[in-house]
């Protein structure tokens, strides 16, 4: 499959604000991304603008403040997707097509029941929550993440296990909570933990390296099949070396760390 044949749906509603960066990430790699409003998928758009989820190879839920973060972050977007698209979306995920949710997108995936998804592809009720940071503040800064996935997650195939990458974080609700007291253990058993917040030595050090207080410094998780990823930090804000905070102070990589996530998606789709 040629890169330009990889069709990516960057799904947005009112209040989404990272769709341009997410679109660019795929565009840089030669794919065919499209910013699609939810109304275009659920029949609320004029005929020429209507789209069908099954025509895409990748679904990306970008960051932002969808529907103003009212009720809970991501809750309204998730409820609208659930009412309009749950059959299509379940099929999409079961076909092992990649679904990535960044920041608000992660909150949406959790509200939708697509993560952590221990029992089924999409649980009828959320089984986890991304709740207010321990600091009760919007935490916005570069964060260091260690890839702790043992190979289940398709989104980190280009990042060696144990490698530390820098993606910026910017959120007020990023603390992963569940009713299950063994959440982290279960995630780990299934190889669903993808990224953990770490310090400059690659060690887990809690706040402020972990901006939100998530248990065991978990920053990003995937579903048991490894084709749905949700993470709070923003790989799409780290595409170029020029957006790295140290780019004038000795940062030597050719590109930003975030691009590896999108390259991994492309590798998977292109086979």
């Amino acid at each position: 499959m040629r890169p330009e044949d990889v069709k990516v749906c960057v799904l947005r509603i009112e209040g989404t604000n990272c769709e341009d960066e997410t679109f660019n990430a795929f565009k840089i790699l030669g794919a065919d991304p499209e910013k699609v409003h939810l109304n275009q998928l659920d029949g609320h758009a004029p005929e020429l603008m209507q789209r069908s989820l099954e025509d895409y190879d990748v679904l990306a839920l970008p960051g932002g403040f969808s529907a103003g973060d009212y009720i809970r972050a991501g809750a309204i977007f998730a409820a609208r997707i659930r009412s309009a698209l749950s059959v299509d979306l379940t099929r999409f995920v079961e076909q092992e097509k990649p679904v990535i949710g960044i920041c608000n997108g992660f909150q949406i995936l959790v509200e939708l029941g697509l993560l952590p998804a221990f029992e089924e592809t999409m649980s009828p009720m959320p089984t986890a929550a991304l709740f207010t940071n321990d600091s009760a503040r919007f935490e916005c800064r570069p964060t260091l993440l260690r890839n702790d996935n043992r190979g289940n997650c398709l989104f980190t195939s280009r990042i060696p296990k144990g490698e530390v990458v820098m993606f910026p974080s910017a959120h007020a609700e990023g603390k992963l909570l569940s009713m299950d007291p063994d959440l982290v253990e279960r995630l780990d058993d299934n190889d669903q933990i993808v990224f953990r917040y770490v310090d400059q030595d690659g060690e887990q050090s809690g706040y402020p390296w972990n901006p939100n207080g998530s248990p065991d410094d978990v920053a990003g998780i995937c579903n048991p099949a490894g084709n749905v990823l949700g993470l709070m930090p923003h790989p799409e804000r780290a595409l170029s070396r020029f957006t790295h905070p140290d780019w004038t102070r000795g940062y030597e990589k050719e590109e930003g760390d975030g691009l590896a996530v999108f390259r991994s998606i492309m590798d998977h789709v292109r086979g």
């Binding site: 009720i71 809970r72 809750a75 409820a79 009720m125 986890a128 909570l177």
Partner: peptide
């Protein structure tokens, strides 16, 4: 509440 207003986890 079940469909939107509350997340039963928290």
């Amino acid at each position: 509440c079940r469909k939107l207003l509350a997340n039963p986890v928290i």
